[in-house]
Design a protein around this nucleic acid. Sequence first.
RNA 1: GGGAGCAUAGCUCAGCUGGUUUAGAGCAUCUGCCUUACAAGCAGAGGGUCCGCGGUUCGAACCCGUGUGCUCCCA
Length: 876
Amino acid sequence: MELSKNYIPTEVETKWYAHWLDKGYFSSKPDERDPYTVVIPPPNVTGVLHMGHCLNNSIQDILVRRARMTGKNACWVPGTDHASIATEAKVVAMLRERGIAKSSLSRDEFLGYAWEWKEKYGGIILQQLRKLGCSLDWDRTSFTMDQDYYQSVIKVFNDLYAKGHIYRGKRMINWDVRAKTALSDEEVIYKEVQSKLYYIRYRIDTGSESHHEFITIATVRPETIMGDTAICVNPNDERFKHLHGKFAYVPLINRRIPIIPDEYVEVDFGTGALKVTPAHDINDYQLGQKYQLDIIDTMNDDGTMSEAAQIFIGEDRFEVRKKIIPELESAGNLVKIEDYTNQVGFSERTDVVVESRLSLQWWVSMKAISEPALKAVMDDEINFHPAKFKNLYRHWMENIKDWCISRQLWWGHRIPAYYLEDGSFVVAHSLEEAFEKFKSKNSKVKIEDIKQDEDCLDTWFSSWLWPFEVFKGLSNPGNAEVKYYYPTNTLVTAPEIIFFWVARMIMAGYEYQGEKPFSDVYFTGIVRDKQGRKMSKSLGNSPDLLGLIDQYGADAVRFGIMIASPAGNDLLFDESSLEQGRNFNNKMWNALKLLKMWEVRQADLGADLKNDFAINWFENRLNTVKAEVEILMQQFRLSEALKIIYSLVWDDFCSWYLEWIKPGFEQPIDKEVYQRTVSYFEELMQILHPFVPFITEEIYHLLNEQSDDLCVKQNQSIKAVNEDITNAGELLKNVISALRDARNKNQLKPKETIKLHIQTENISSYQAIEKILAKQVNADQTSFTAESIANSIVVAIEKDKFFIETEKVLDATTLKAELLKDLEYQTKFLQSVTIKLSNERFVQNAKPEVVELERKKQSDAAARIKTIEESLANLN
RNA sequence: GGGAGCAUAGCUCAGCUGGUUUAGAGCAUCUGCCUUACAAGCAGAGGGUCCGCGGUUCGAACCCGUGUGCUCCCA
């Protein structure tokens, strides 16, 4: 079979993914094995694969594939989130394109379009995850608005309401005037903006028509003055002490409002006097509560002025801000205008300025249900990786605020609250149940009179059930699947949603399954571009992932994204790391080609594998790395695990081992050595498989006729490592590198052969590696010597000396300079060690091993200096 | 305004319990090689005020304090 010059991923990837699916490797059924369960953080049903998903899902796939290869029943559940706000926005946009206004549709008509949209475009991302190689159990694909799931959400609402954890209350909320919906605090993005600070004076009620006195306030929002119900000053501010308890008039509308003293006001800011608008500012609202001020809501839900504003009724808030200034000026109330930079909240979804607004909303009171969730993380029932997120979590949980769960949207789980005309309401699972509930209070109620709440629940109010409801843990409590798969093992997610989602899943897990939802949480970093900017649609700095997969292959993309992304650290995405991945794949491909060349040249050379240094050394390395990988994977240090495997493959296997066993040009290779090498290569593919599944499967099958697939091949136990062989290998590598360096520095061309003489007290340690050494430094002759060799290049390694004899005329200058440099370094080092050892307090206080170690360093350095001095003497 | 975290080579990061650290890796850079698996490669090399200052200690990249800069979360 002819293998291509370079590795070409496209066909290989398609072929193997289809094969794995065909074999049903990703589908999981409960059995006698231990489960390893991961639920995907459900991407928005509107989503398309971006870098964040790619990182997140690569990590999950690595964990899941590795579990599958280590005797676990691996189950990775896919699915999507209905994403109320995002999806509704998409559907509205689609309707607009077709010339249909949402307002012209009934709720049911709108939902009809929404489902149509979902069926047609939703879940593209799940197809894209297949391209990435994700080993998801597709038969389990879930959606947060599946019939059962929907019912479970309603059930939870009813249950929490019955337990008194859900209440309805008028509260200050963030209001999106474009989407006409309440936003959670988390959906508000604060941005720095250039504003104006308007200084406006309010006439004080002096009791006299002729005596005019004013108090000046500063505000960035002059359009809200019609909602003012007080002026507040700091009680310690001497300038205003005489005004405490007096009244002032709101300009233009002449409302009489009190002047109240409160510490809240900063003396230094603005004029030191603050207008208080309880209906439109959270801090003012709190002040209003404290002093029982009137609350006058001057704004409609679309951001226009309401009747209560008295003036500018029906005009937009920003228009009013412009128009009110000349009016204030002509009324004599405007003092001055200054430039001002402040933080303003914007809606995450529509990017319009968020209004603080009083509204009747549904709330979950969090304190009670959050306690077990806090404890679980603090007691390491649930482990965070990296652990630094524990602090953050604790701080948030200890200061947890109630959760506003209603959203003024149609797409989502409709709030199961039912109202009568008179405003009385019940919470029920269905209209029929609501009817029963109403009837028990009032037998005259007719079912047609009952109206269900128009609003939907916050998307997170459904996703917090995800880890158990994907197994129908609530819709079919205690079923065999949820018993087997729950609690899940690992959750992989972004730290940004630790509160939105992770914390709430933990709460729901304890509340509804009596158990944690997962044991470990791996927090990925945020993917940023080369300049460190967060990747976002608006910046347009998100690369086209499918394009990258086409260009480099899914394996290379996975490699590139994993190689430099330790848990919890941001990932600065740079295409060059994908190149590194592609090059790595190509390297392996070429190693395969080399073996294929040897395959046809096998001969029984009677090699003694027990004494074959290269074979034993590599086996040793392989087992060392396997053991290290095992530990790193347990610690979720995926990036480091990949790094050491990369180095094992490239450096140890390709650069050292294959060169050591490589037969001469067109010479045969020993059959046993070849077979052993093939099996090493297979093992390398096996360790690497979870990271780069496609190429490893391909190479595994090209190396040999296989009866199984790597995807489900079980890892064998790791063999013990022989330290002596490891050390001998290190020595060999050091000697080879040093001798090559010496060759380089003396301008010996690679093809020029040398004669190598070794001066050592440990001849036996070199005998096993002598042949390899000779080949690797292109020596046609090696010997052991007791004496220095004249006119040769001297290389000193530890206590041993190597003499390179060559026919070329040597220039000793560089060599001498090198040796002198080394001598200087060693002398200084010896000095520092000697000082340390002559410090009595060190010798007394330090641990004996440490002192012993320093003594060894001292004697080694001294010996080394002696060697260098001898070499120098030899040069002269 | 409140909180959390980070600062080590040009870049991205290791460095876990203070002592094999006169600090490692990958990438990038430089030098030499088109050597029959691989130039998407091979062989080698150079590169550091461990952010500044102070302290604890026989000993600090690591612990404590402080300053500076950056990032994130919350208001």
